[in-house]
Design a protein around this nucleic acid. Structure first.
Lengths: 195, 195
DNA sequence: GTCTATAGCGGGATAGAC
DNA sequence: GTCTATCCCGCTATAGAC
């Protein structure tokens, strides 16, 4: 089972996904052609089909991969301590994870419409799982008495929308910038759920 | 200058825009064809060009029209009183304006990429104008001492993202539902900017 | 104002040589 | 694994009859 001589699939595969991600984030899935993606990689359109059975699967792999990475990172973060400490950790985690992944975030929230029904259900389930991680923290804080939250589900959606919205205006910037953004948003999140 | 017999342009025109809005919100601009829009209206594709010079202009009219409506409504609302009162009025206004316009909101935030450079600049300028209305209120509250806001521009974006995010999960529902949503979000907005 | 018909182009995907 | 060539389809937009 030795790898074939001249095989570049271990290099070209990632390049295909990177090119697709970049182009789809920029122009949208429906507006990007397989020919454009191939040109970006430096191969012909036909050769793309060595790396994906079709365009739909390529989109799904990008979106699903992003959600798998996100859930894996959440699990690894393993928030603990008081509800307030967990909420701060979650807030900073969300910002730190999403800021360097502008294209993935954009595609994952804009291209849901272009997934097949089955692929949509799979991606949506993972997104729900992520939301639930935050909702659990809010409910713990409510029981603790730290938080005052009339409707944990709505507050979950509100906080995630606020944090994800950073991607709408954030551009480039180094570590210090990120620190400051984290501080400002954590301040707002904290105040919005405490008495 | 009497209107031609058999002319339906005063009826068909709005029907074209309504159909385009519905379909684009559902499937995205690039994925919707002029044939689909025509079929939804009940005419042939060629006849669409009596109502728009091209597909791009049709998209622009939808998005620009939405922003014009929004800015007109903001101006008519004419917020006054303390900064806190103005912020509450703005929050409730935003929710009341956006909730019944799910398709417009969706299209206006998802299809910016598909506007020509010139059309994008026009729409973006109006959106900036709307954001500025909120930012002014926040700055007044900061001067008053009512609010504690480290960065008014970021807080503006955070609040608008949070409020606009309602469209991501809101479905149908009557007046009472809207009242409750307003109350929950106003509660969060208020707490997030006050000490 | 709407129709039918079509020009002209570009799309996704496949076949077969190398 | 990549190439060239191509099938077949659907797209936007226009022309000209009614």
């Amino acid at each position: 089972m030795a790898r074939k001589q001249g095989s570049h699939s271990d290099i070209t595969g990632p390049k295909v996904r990177a090119a697709a991600l970049r182009l789809i984030a920029r122009h949208g899935y429906a507006a990007v052609s397989m020919r454009q993606i191939a040109a970006e990689v430096g191969i012909q359109a036909g050769a793309l089909y060595n790396y994906t059975p079709d365009k739909q699967t390529l989109l799904f792999d990008l979106m699903h991969g992003h959600m798998v990475d996100l859930l894996g990172a959440v699990e690894a973060a393993d928030f603990d301590g008081t509800a307030l400490a967990q909420l701060e950790a979650f807030t900073r985690f969300h910002i730190q994870f999403h800021l360097p992944r502008a294209d993935q975030v954009f595609v994952s929230y804009m291209e849901l419409r272009n997934l097949s029904d089955e692929n949509f259900a799979t991606v949506e389930a993972k997104r729900r799982e992520y939301e639930n991680a935050l909702e659990r923290i809010l409910r713990v804080g409510e029981v603790e008495g730290t938080f005052h939250i009339p409707d944990p589900r709505i507050t979950t959606m509100a906080i995630i929308a606020m944090l994800t919205g950073i991607s709408n205006w954030y551009r480039a910037g180094g570590r210090l910038e990120t620190d400051k953004i984290e501080a400002i948003y954590w301040d707002m999140v904290r105040r919005s759920v405490t008495a």
